[in-house]
Amino acid sequence: MNIFRLAGDLSHLLAIILLLIKIWKTRSCAGISGKSQILFAVVYVSRYLDLVTTFISLYNTLMKLVFITSSFATLYLMYVKFKATYDHNHDSFRIEFLLLPCFVLALLINASFTPLEVLWTFSIYLEAVAILPQLFLVSKTGEAESITSHYLFALGSYRALYLLNWIYRYYAEGHYDLIAIFAGAIQTILYCDFFYLYITKVLKGKKLQLPA
């Protein structure tokens, strides 16, 4: 564990908490893509299957449980409790266009062809693009509430911090995982446009609004 990795994990945790707070406090999931949240749930379940096979550390186990549980809690709030506020019409991204290619890619490019490893690889590829329905929703409505922007910033920062963690681990430990690094770079790049808007607008107290 190094400082980048810890900061990345905490940023990830913060993102999830911000999202739950936003939905709970406003009693609404307007502006949040249920499609992205479904994809994140798929990511966590397919990645953390090793919870039942491998014990790494208490920290590792607890964080995995928190991610899986909070992900399903978010889905519950969106699709059951505050279903009426869900922005169904704007959340029209077709997730099968992400799920299928990621799965095929995981079958083709993986570190070892075992069920757990293929599913882990699938989750890495899927996570890289899982935010696309959310970004698509923001681009369709042309704006995002400030708390939604904070959520997206924390979520994007997490993988950017992981990139620093991987660079650190390469030099400090000689450890690297090309699949995670490549997918993590793609994931971070997808947020760049949003990062720019966040820094130039939201941090200056303005609402995140896309140019018409």
Binding site: H12, T54, I56, S57, N60, F67, A111, E117, D177, A180
Partner: peptide, 10 residues
């Protein structure tokens, strides 16, 4: 390179 003990990152 996959560590035999699994992936330690989240």
């Amino acid at each position: 390179e996959v560590e035999e003990e699994g992936h330690d990152e989240l």
